[in-house]
């Protein structure tokens, strides 16, 4: 298992390769460096977890890949190489052929992703019309097949229903069906289960994993939920204030975090097996991203910060196991 995972990391041609991505917003209050020099790869068939708290920039990474950054935001620099093609350089017309067909995205709120005026059948068939050369007679069949795959009972009759006739969990299933129907190579899911209940959450995560594996696609799961990501992802990228603070194989990052922010996040989650009176907390709050301190952005909240942390921004340093942390004093694996 670990051998296979390491193989996929070392694979020469990743499906997606994000290099030094900078997505900035030029606002009245200053430049918001929502994504500031982020690099990572997604291998074919891999599930990558992109985690962090609000303001970390994780959603903006997803939007940048999809070419959905609107003014005052802009991709300032960097490459988004997907199947050998730099998406950051594509114009809107060519980007539209990538979106939906080769890269699909799922959002937190399933209601806004569905057009309330069309039946879900219309919306599924529309995707096929846009992105495949399936004859119209076959489209309905394929739509029914797809709904059955995502676990919607009586798909033949549900096809003619409107989005409001579905419950929240069912809507998110429909969204997954629409995003997967054109068999994209990469699915980006931005907090896909946050708005849903625990019991539904587990069903949907399982469904997404199944869909992605079945289609040999890759998944970028963007979430704040470390527990969910630890159950799903092969590798994890942790973002803080628009920068990567840690990345590596999921088990490594969860069990042996090297960055103090990752460790703080993990410790903040109440653990029932440890009878503790108080939770370990990260002091302070996320700084204003327009006025980041010099050096390491986490230094003001970091228990291990020294003078150098407040002056020099740390580089991502990779260890032998492929785990990388941007920290001057990374946590050594003693546990």
């Amino acid at each position: 298992m670990s051998e296979a995972a390491r193989m996929s990391v070392a694979q020469p041609a990743p499906l997606l390769s994000v290099r030094n991505l900078r997505t900035w917003f030029h606002t009245f209050g200053g430049v918001v460096k929502a994504v500031d020099g982020v690099s990572f790869d997604v291998a074919p068939g891999e599930i990558l977890g992109l985690v962090g708290e609000s303001g970390g920039g994780k959603s903006m990474v997803g939007f940048s890949i999809m070419g959905l950054i609107d003014p005052p935001g802009r991709i300032e620099a960097g490459e988004i190489v997907f199947e050998g093609e730099d998406l950051a350089r594509l114009d809107e017309a060519r980007m539209r052929r990538v979106r939906g067909k080769r890269v699909a995205m799922i959002f937190q709120d399933p209601m806004t992703a569905l057009n309330p005026l069309y039946t879900i059948g219309n919306q599924l068939e529309e995707m096929l019309k846009l992105h495949t050369d399936l004859p119209s007679a076959r489209r309905r069949e394929r739509a029914i097949e797809m709904l059955r795959e995502v676990g919607i009972p009586q798909p033949e009759s549900r096809l003619d229903n409107y989005p409001h006739q579905f419950s929240g969990g069912m809507r998110q299933r429909v969204v997954i069906a629409i995003s997967m129907i054109a068999r994209p190579r990469l699915l980006i899911a931005d907090e896909p289960t946050t708005a849903l209940d625990v019991t539904i959450q587990a069903q949907l995560l399982r469904l997404m994993k199944h869909q992605v594996t079945q289609n040999a696609a890759s998944l970028i799961l963007i979430t704040h939920d470390l527990a969910a990501v630890s159950q799903m992802a092969d590798r994890i990228v942790v973002l803080y204030c628009g920068r990567i603070v840690e990345k590596g194989r999921a088990a490594d990052v969860i069990e042996r975090p090297r960055h103090h922010y990752t460790r703080g996040l993990l410790d903040s989650i109440p653990h029932h097996d440890k009878a503790q009176a108080r939770l370990r907390q990260i002091p302070g709050s996320v700084p204003d991203i327009r006025k980041l301190p010099p050096g390491c952005a986490f230094a003001p909240r970091c228990p291990a910060a020294q003078d150098i942390c407040r002056r020099v921004e740390p580089e991502l340093v990779e260890t032998a196991t492929g785990q990388a942390a941007a920290c001057h004093f990374p946590i050594e694996a003693t546990r």
Partner: peptide, 25 residues
């Protein structure tokens, strides 16, 4: 029991579908 089984726990694999309750409220 179903609620406890469905809740994601750090570092454990996704629970198999057999543990989950079906349908919605």
């Amino acid at each position: 029991q179903a609620l406890l089984a469905a809740a994601p726990v750090l570092g454990t694999p996704l629970p198999p579908a057999a543990d989950a309750i079906k349908g919605e409220v």
